[in-house]
């Protein structure tokens, strides 16, 4: 790759275009998808609850994005510090853990009781991660069915963890397509110089513009509403564009 200013401009423009287009391509209903995973895991383990928490941007908190079962309503949206608790340890260490009697960890029991109103006896926690990043953690509370011995249950939970990680990775790709395109290219690059150049481009890639994302999502939704709605939306958009051009003159 050349370092010529022209090339850099083209690559930056490409990153900007990808960033703006990504959110439109993103699967809609990804939150519902996470909830469906949580509910399926809960049923598979015959558990009281299952929840999925995602690391915040600054990595200091875990935010519960989806939950099913006991305390689910109070759990979704809840934020807990990432540097404590069973979930925190799983995320930080990259290791799965199952505790049979969490109420004996006084700090954990108090925290959970104060937030969700449901105090579990047993908990399994598994990090959600791949070779590029750690996304968060999936937890199963008070399972009544499973492989009989703990490790079998953890292997089953690993299947749900992989599924959740794929869903989160996909959502992230489209939320930040500009950055991810160059990160992926950097991973595949042969030479150090090329890889570092691509990593710099990834770091500098613009984030999606919220207003543009909102507009494109609206148009996307209209297009799917039906042919009449699409025609009406196209006419309105054209009329607005003609008016805007007139004003610019």
């Amino acid at each position: 790759m050349s370092d010529a200013p022209g090339d850099r401009d083209v690559l930056r423009a490409l990153a900007g275009l990808a960033s703006d287009a990504g959110p439109v391509l993103r699967l809609r209903g990804d939150r519902e998808f996470l909830t469906a995973i949580a509910e399926t895991a809960r049923l598979a383990f015959d558990a009281a609850a299952c929840s999925i928490a995602v690391l915040s941007e600054n990595e200091r908190e875990l935010e519960f994005r989806a939950a099913a079962g006991a305390g689910a309503d109070a759990t979704v949206g809840l934020r807990i510090p990432s540097d404590r608790g069973i979930a925190g340890w799983a995320v930080m260490s990259g290791q799965a853990i199952a505790i049979a009697d969490v109420s004996r960890d006084p700090r954990f029991a108090a925290e959970v009781a104060a937030t969700t109103g449901y105090v579990p006896t047993a908990i399994m926690a598994m990090p959600l991660e791949n070779e590029r990043r750690t996304f968060g953690v999936i937890e199963v509370l008070d399972r009544r069915r499973g492989g009989g011995e703990g490790m079998d249950d953890l292997e089953l939970l690993a299947c749900f963890a992989r599924l959740t990680t794929l869903a989160l990775e996909t959502a992230r790709v489209f939320s930040n397509l500009g950055r991810v395109l160059f990160e992926s290219a950097a991973l595949a690059a042969d030479g150090d110089d090329l890889r570092h150049a691509l990593e710099r481009l990834a770091a500098d890639a613009p984030k999606p513009r919220a207003e543009l994302t909102q507009l494109t999502l609206l148009l996307h939704e209209l297009a799917e509403a039906g042919p009449d709605e699409l025609l009406a939306a196209t006419r309105v958009a054209n009329a607005v564009l003609i008016y805007a051009r007139t004003r610019r003159r």
Binding site: A96, R104, D105
Partner: peptide, 21 residues
């Protein structure tokens, strides 16, 4: 051993835990 063990934990307590760790 790493399945359903009684292990030391915070507050001079023990808990029953499972994991390769």
């Amino acid at each position: 051993p790493g399945i359903d063990l009684e292990v030391a934990w915070l507050g001079s307590k023990t808990i029953r835990a499972t994991g390769n760790s």
